[in-house]
Computed example of a mutant assay.
Amino acid sequence: MSKLVLHGYWRSSAAYRVRIALNLKGVAYDQVSHDLRAGEQRSPDYLAIAPHGLVPALQQGNTVLIESPAILEWIEAKWPLPALLPGSAEDMAIVRAMAALIACDVHPLNNLRVLNDLRTRFQASKDQVQHWVHHWIGEGFTALEKMIAQHGGAFAFGDAPTMADCYIVPQLYNAQRFKLDLSPFPRIVAAGEAAGQLSAFKAAHPDVQADAGQG
């Protein structure tokens, strides 16, 4: 079996999710960096691999998977243990909902291409962009805080890391980078801190990637 290659970027939270999941499963992979700020994700060579021109893409031989939710589901199916989804259908749906809250409702509104469009197309100032980011992360975190209060234990769901933590930890990183006040979200912060103690999460952190600081 050919080795996995993760196409990403050190500060991409979507690529960060995939690194966490692979690390939790103990799956070896190589990384290829594409500097998003330099537009390398839109180079012809990369578009031949990933036609959407975004990271991450996960490549194994001639197979290329795109979009982090699909990639994480594939990882879970391919390497079932340790499980990133709980046992019952209801609990799986709750964990997937936590993940989707980040992947669908929060992250798309504060990723690089949206923020760049605010700056260029609408001439948004630095303060206006930061207000935008704070608003949408805050909206999502307000709902997520309630879900963790209901379903969380040591981690976002129960007492073991799940797919939800793979999404929450990178979004916390983004929130801190944009200087969002996290005091209204103590359960999210606690879940993130618990996950951050695990070696799988430490090894996935943007600051320790080979391309850290690029762009």
Score class of each variant (00 low, 15 high):
residue 1 M to C: 10
residue 3 K to Y: 00
residue 8 G to H: 00
residue 10 W to F: 10
residue 15 A to P: 03
residue 16 Y to T: 06
residue 17 R to W: 06
residue 20 I to R: 04
residue 21 A to H: 00
residue 21 A to Y: 01
residue 21 A to D: 03
residue 22 L to W: 03
residue 24 L to E: 01
residue 25 K to L: 10
residue 26 G to M: 07
residue 27 V to K: 08
residue 29 Y to V: 03
residue 30 D to V: 05
residue 31 Q to A: 11
residue 32 V to Q: 14
residue 37 R to Q: 15
residue 37 R to Y: 15
residue 39 G to H: 12
residue 39 G to P: 10
residue 40 E to D: 15
residue 41 Q to L: 09
residue 42 R to A: 10
residue 43 S to E: 13
residue 43 S to A: 14
residue 44 P to M: 12
residue 45 D to Q: 14
residue 45 D to C: 01
residue 46 Y to L: 10
residue 46 Y to H: 12
residue 47 L to W: 10
residue 51 P to H: 09
residue 51 P to R: 11
residue 54 L to D: 02
residue 54 L to E: 07
residue 54 L to I: 06
residue 54 L to F: 06
residue 55 V to S: 01
residue 57 A to P: 03
residue 60 Q to N: 09
residue 60 Q to D: 01
residue 60 Q to E: 13
residue 60 Q to M: 06
residue 60 Q to I: 00
residue 66 I to H: 05
residue 68 S to G: 11
residue 70 A to K: 01
residue 71 I to P: 05
residue 74 W to M: 08
residue 75 I to Q: 02
residue 77 A to D: 14
residue 77 A to L: 11
residue 79 W to N: 05
residue 83 A to L: 07
residue 84 L to A: 08
residue 85 L to T: 10
residue 89 A to D: 13
residue 90 E to R: 13
residue 90 E to V: 12
residue 91 D to R: 12
residue 91 D to M: 11
residue 94 I to A: 10
residue 94 I to R: 09
residue 95 V to P: 04
residue 95 V to T: 07
residue 101 L to V: 10
residue 104 C to P: 02
residue 104 C to W: 00
residue 107 H to D: 09
residue 107 H to A: 08
residue 109 L to R: 05
residue 111 N to K: 11
residue 113 R to W: 05
residue 121 R to C: 12
residue 125 S to F: 13
residue 125 S to H: 13
residue 126 K to I: 14
residue 131 H to C: 09
residue 131 H to K: 14
residue 132 W to C: 06
residue 133 V to K: 03
residue 133 V to T: 04
residue 134 H to I: 00
residue 137 I to G: 03
residue 142 T to M: 01
residue 144 L to F: 07
residue 145 E to F: 00
residue 146 K to G: 12
residue 149 A to Q: 14
residue 149 A to K: 13
residue 153 G to F: 06
residue 154 A to M: 11
residue 155 F to A: 04
residue 156 A to I: 03
residue 156 A to P: 06
residue 158 G to L: 04
residue 159 D to R: 09
residue 159 D to N: 15
residue 159 D to H: 14
residue 159 D to L: 11
residue 163 M to R: 07
residue 163 M to N: 07
residue 163 M to Y: 03
residue 166 C to V: 02
residue 166 C to E: 02
residue 170 P to Q: 02
residue 171 Q to H: 03
residue 172 L to E: 03
residue 175 A to T: 06
residue 176 Q to N: 12
residue 179 K to T: 13
residue 179 K to W: 03
residue 182 L to A: 08
residue 183 S to K: 08
residue 185 F to K: 02
residue 186 P to H: 07
residue 187 R to A: 04
residue 190 A to T: 07
residue 191 A to F: 02
residue 193 E to I: 13
residue 193 E to G: 05
residue 194 A to V: 08
residue 196 G to Y: 00
residue 196 G to S: 13
residue 198 L to F: 11
residue 201 F to P: 03
residue 201 F to Y: 10
residue 203 A to W: 05
residue 207 D to I: 14
residue 208 V to A: 08
residue 208 V to K: 11
residue 211 D to F: 09
residue 214 Q to R: 15
residue 215 G to V: 00
